[in-house]
Design a protein around this nucleic acid. Structure first.
Lengths: 137, 137
DNA sequence: TATATTCCCTACCTTTTTTGTAGACTAATA
DNA sequence: TATTAGTCTACAAAAAAGGTAGGGAATATA
């Protein structure tokens, strides 16, 4: 399951996308509108900024804004950024690969299946973008 | 990611499947062969017994054994049993459904995408069985 | 340049989940 | 009836998730 953090991130991103015309949006506005703890949301937005998804502006008239058009923001990227691996096993993760203990990959049938699951999942999450989850499509 | 618990469960299940001919297998044997903490494994096997996947026999010559042929044990069932929901959001889970807070499902584009992910995942996990992950296929 | 505004950063705290352990109990078998 | 082996309840440690506090730094504007 996606963590609250990632779920909040999606709430924030769709809010930003739907209000792009207004220019930079205050953290506090997103927090109120989408009912997310202000300080927790601060962390999340900052993390997304560092990952290159959001931009920000300080001082009066400041706030956060999307740095790319919604159709260029892959859902897979957001999930990986905040939740880590999408794969079900470390040994089949493309971005967070780790060897499995107690299991030789060459002879383990599980990783083949899990690689198939991963591919099927990514087929959706890498194709779909922020634009696809907006309310006013 | 799958929890250790579920990963251990798969180790145990494949061991049981590969040694079916030997009759009931001791917890301690699986624990040693697959390097899993004995007491932790006890809990896991018991849970699978209660869920109807394993049978057991007490006393000398006892142990655990598969109650169904490996090709009848869906991977999805094992995962759900020990890890819970397979879906990425509670509101698109078939077996563990819960309403999402702060999000009206009718107008939330996220759940449509996540339902698609779920379907793609289940396409694999409900088709593949314990037999498909055995070493000596 | 003073001040208000707003994001930035570090550190911490609480709760929940995961992972693992202890020990007594019950059932089967020889 | 002694031994073997699973069953059950409870607990505990460690890790992860979720959330909070408070000051610092950059910006805008008067």
């Amino acid at each position: 399951m996606l963590s609250k953090k990632t779920q909040y991130a999606f709430h924030a991103l769709t809010y930003l996308a739907e209000n792009q015309a207004k220019g930079p949006i205050l953290i506090s506005e997103i927090s109120q509108e989408r009912k997310i703890s202000l300080k927790f949301l601060e962390n999340i937005l900052l993390e997304m900024k560092k990952a290159g998804v959001l931009g920000s502006k300080k001082g009066k008239g400041g706030g956060y804004y999307l740095i790319k058009p919604p159709e260029d923001v892959q859902l897979a990227k957001i999930i990986r950024m905040l939740d880590g691996p999408i794969a079900l096993l470390p040994c089949v993760s493309l971005n967070y690969y780790e060897r499995c203990e107690n299991c030789t990959e060459e002879r383990c049938g599980l990783n083949e299946v899990m690689a198939e699951v991963r591919d099927n999942t990514l087929k959706v999450l890498e194709k779909k973008t922020l634009k696809d989850v907006l309310r006013n499509r």
